[in-house]
Design a protein around this nucleic acid. Structure first.
Length: 628
DNA sequence: ACGGATGGCACG
DNA sequence: TCGTGCCAT
């Protein structure tokens, strides 16, 4: 249920940007012959022509809709081009679209707080940028207004086609406008500039809404599509909402919206004004009641989050009807594929963004054979996430078995699985200070590269390290996760590549020596080698490196065609080493430099309250098994 | 044979 | 906290 947020007193300038039929645009960029053609993107072509997930505007004219089957689309629009979503491991692979989305986010995140709302949607808080423009180069005293901005749709600004742009320009430059409206005008200009920049740099068009809050911005971003923007002056909100069907509001497209209609006779947002806040709370609870009351008045305090990356990664597949999985073997086989992809994606997230996921969750849908449709839900199950494809597969299968156990009780026959998915969540940044321990462990690209290989500026850990042997290193390498090639270029393609840092490769011998050093450090931190192999769940991560030679000779770096740059983004050379937090020897850590101790605390993270209160505040207290 | 694959959020 | 919904595209 939605919940109201406190309303900031200062007026804000919020934008919502939405890529137009995004998947189609991605395919059109890849194959320009598709431009201007009726086109749709489909997945799984075998059954009724596959399901449409994006439809070009040319095709929409024929009545082609999302959720149609390919066959239906062909029927209403015989000339339509159907492009298939890439398939990898026998399932749809959306990585090309994710990557393309990141390109856009990179551009949009330059002007203010930016929230990646989905693969093709972004919220911006442009308040500061708008204020700056207003004080330094206000539209009203500018000779030229950015042309794309003059094509804006201003809610309530009625004008016929002939003088529309003149009227818009006049509105944008109005000297007698509210402070609020002036800010909005600046916001509109900034968004127009951003949209043009996105188009220039990615060839993608997008639509946008500019308003004083997220709700209104989102509401209108889709009003004029494609490739247009819409502004909501606060003076127009009341009338606009009055006649708006409740179902159009975000969050009201489902059951809550239906309930408003069916139970309260509320057809439009305006109808909601007839209810007091208390009355709405009576029906829907305090939170939702207040939210509804505010929503009816165009009030929304929800802030734009500063987040460019997703909060979770999920891989799933459905097995409709006859495709349902009925054996453990079939489930295992599919789960393995899903986990492979998931592993690749979190590995990429780690390499590119220095983030680690902590929780693995399995979702499934199941139906029982004979026994009359007992629609019992298959329970989701989760556990701490251990890195490494094999471990994820192993854990996922266990989660499945656990779920199946609950699903069935004890009798174990005749189930069938109609969907499976695995999700990695609770993702955190890995701290990386200048004096980070990662400098000891990672390759040259981790910090100041020169100091890494310069012993004089690198604190000497020798006293703590003890014997370094090849077996230590081999042991560490066992824990490596090698991403496959399919998302190898993720970092390079996405703007996020910058975060990977770019460095020239150092000599192999130096890297080897770094590897030895890091292996020894891991060994040094590790209390018991055998613990690595126990079935316990992974509860922490020591490091990722970017730039070491892989131990296997099968490095594909050469195929990359890029020498010399961004070894960090080159997955083929990136290894990740992991160590179970439970295996870190607290006594030994206690002797490390303080800064490093603090950093290690950061890895153990669960921060908030988890361990500190229960177990005191010394670092060693973090290393007793924290869960399970 | 539910459009499918992903995501986010609030609740209990 | 985890698991369940609901919502969105």
């Amino acid at each position: 249920m939605p919940v109201a947020r406190p309303e900031p007193q200062e007026p804000r300038v919020i934008a919502h940007l939405d890529l137009d039929c995004f998947y189609v645009q991605v395919e059109q960029r890849r194959n320009p012959a598709l431009r201007g053609q009726p086109t749709a993107v489909v997945q799984y072509n075998d059954w009724k022509g596959g399901g449409l997930i994006a439809v070009s505007y040319e095709a929409r004219k024929f009545g082609v809709k999302r959720s149609m089957r390919g066959d239906e689309a062909k029927h209403v629009c015989p000339g339509i081009n159907l492009v298939q979503v890439p398939v990898s491991r026998d399932k749809a692979d959306l990585n090309v679209y994710r990557s393309a989305g990141s390109e856009v986010v990179a551009i949009l995140s330059t002007k203010g707080k930016c929230e990646r709302a989905s693969i093709d949607e972004v919220y911006l808080d442009l308040t500061d940028a708008a204020k700056e423009m207003l004080s330094e180069s206000p539209p009203e005293s500018s000779e030229f207004i950015f042309e794309e901005a003059t094509k804006s749709n201003i809610l309530d600004l009625t004008s016929d086609a002939s003088d529309r742009e003149e009227n818009v320009k006049a509105w944008l430059c109005r000297a007698d406008a509210d402070y609020q409206d002036k800010l909005l005008a600046c916001g509109a200009i900034i968004v127009a500039q951003l949209r043009v920049k996105v188009l220039e740099e990615t060839q993608f068009t997008c639509s946008a809404g500019i308003a004083h809050n997220k709700m209104l911005a989102k509401l209108v971003s889709g009003m004029h599509k494609p490739a247009q923007q819409t502004v909501v002056p606060s003076s127009s909100v009341q009338d606009f909402l009055a006649s708006l069907p409740v179902k159009k509001m975000k969050q009201l497209g489902g059951k809550l919206g239906s309930s408003l209609q069916d139970d309260l006779g509320v057809e439009t947002v305006g109808d909601l004004l007839g209810f007091t806040e208390e009355k709405l709370q009576e029906y829907y609870g305090v939170n939702t009641g207040t939210w509804l009351w505010k929503t009816a008045r165009g009030i929304s305090g929800e802030e734009v989050e500063d987040r460019l990356l997703p909060k979770s990664h999920g891989c799933g597949k459905t097995f409709p009807g006859p495709k349902a999985l009925k054996t453990n073997t079939a489930v295992k086989s599919w789960l393995d594929k899903l986990c492979e992809e998931l592993s690749e994606r979190i590995q990429s997230d780690l390499n590119c963004n220095k983030r680690v996921a902590q929780t693995l969750t399995l979702h499934a849908r199941a139906s029982k054979e004979n026994e009359c449709n007992s629609v019992k839900k298959f329970p989701s199950k989760s556990c701490p996430l251990r890195y490494g494809t094999g471990k994820i597969q192993e854990d996922a299968m266990k989660l499945f078995e656990s779920g199946l156990h609950d699903f069935w009780g004890y009798r174990n026959t005749g189930w069938s699985i109609t969907s499976l998915s695995v999700t990695a969540s609770k993702i955190f940044d890995i701290p990386s200070g200048t004096n980070s321990i990662l400098r000891y462990i990672k390759g040259p690209s981790s910090g100041a590269s020169s100091t890494i290989v310069d012993p004089s500026s690198t604190p000497d850990l020798t006293p703590f390290v003890g014997n370094v042997t090849q077996t230590d290193i081999a042991h560490v390498h066992e824990e490596q996760c090698q991403p496959s090639s399919s998302i190898k270029e993720d970092c390079d393609n996405s703007s996020l590549a910058k975060q990977c840092g770019a460095t020239e490769e150092k000599g192999v011998s130096k890297k080897l020596s770094k590897a030895q050093e890091s292996g020894s450090i891991l060994k040094f931190l590790s209390q018991s080698q055998s613990a690595f192999h126990e079935k316990r769940n992974f509860d922490g991560l020591i490091c990722s490196n970017q730039g070491h030679e892989s131990s296997s000779g099968a490095s594909e770096a050469g195929q990359h065609g890029k020498t010399n740059i961004n070894t960090a983004g080159d997955h083929s050379a990136g290894n990740t080493w992991m160590l179970n937090v439970e295996d870190i020897d607290p006594d030994v850590v206690g002797e490390l430099p303080l800064e490093i101790q603090r950093e290690i605390q950061g890895w153990i993270r669960p921060s908030k309250h988890a361990s500190t209160k229960k177990r005191g505040s010394t670092i060693s207290s973090y290393f007793s098994p924290s869960r399970r």
